[in-house]
Amino acid sequence: MPLVKGGPPKGSGNSGNIAPKRPTLASSDAESRWTAARALAGHAEAVPDLAAALDRETVPRVREAIMTALMRVGDRASVAAILPCLRSQDAGLRAAAIESLQALPDAIAPFLPPLFADDDSDVRLLATELARNMKASEATRLLCDLIEREQHPNVCAAAIDVLTEVGTSQAIPALENCAARFADTPFLPFAVSVAIARISGSEG
């Protein structure tokens, strides 16, 4: 018989215990930092340490573990820890931050108005994605506030794309205004027409 029974699993793996020692987040060894970050998943009291570690971490795998640990906490402090990554020059880190923050729709909501008012249009554009998993009514309100005053067509386009999926009929007046303001930017009125058709179709 080639099949052998390995016996019940042991109390701990051969990789050693996950030591609940926060200092290992500052270890010079990436494996230790990975292990430490994973052990801190869901521990609200560890958010400041995780935030500091995320700020200085350069190893993608460890960064992922830190973000997962923060996501498992999922409170406003966790969101605040991840938000600076939206300004990173590293596209991978920005994308990872958006994915992480999208998973925390309730916690991210209070941060959206200041993000939508940010001086950096890239940050405003990325922030529209954070509304995608929010409640439809709240996402609609926040995104409509944005497109009513936003001057950058690409930011508006990003917001319209999200509204197309999650928007309610309350968005239609703001969408129409946006199309009128950007009448000279053909792709925006077109995007608005698609969004309104989708929203109207869904609610009609």
Partner: peptide, 22 residues
């Protein structure tokens, strides 16, 4: 039946999953 080990494991419990390696 005798050659397969059946055990309880919670996939999202990091501490529990420490028992499973290699």
């Amino acid at each position: 039946r005798g050659s397969i080990e059946f055990t309880r494991a919670n996939l999202i419990d990091t501490q529990d999953m420490l028992r499973y390696r290699d």
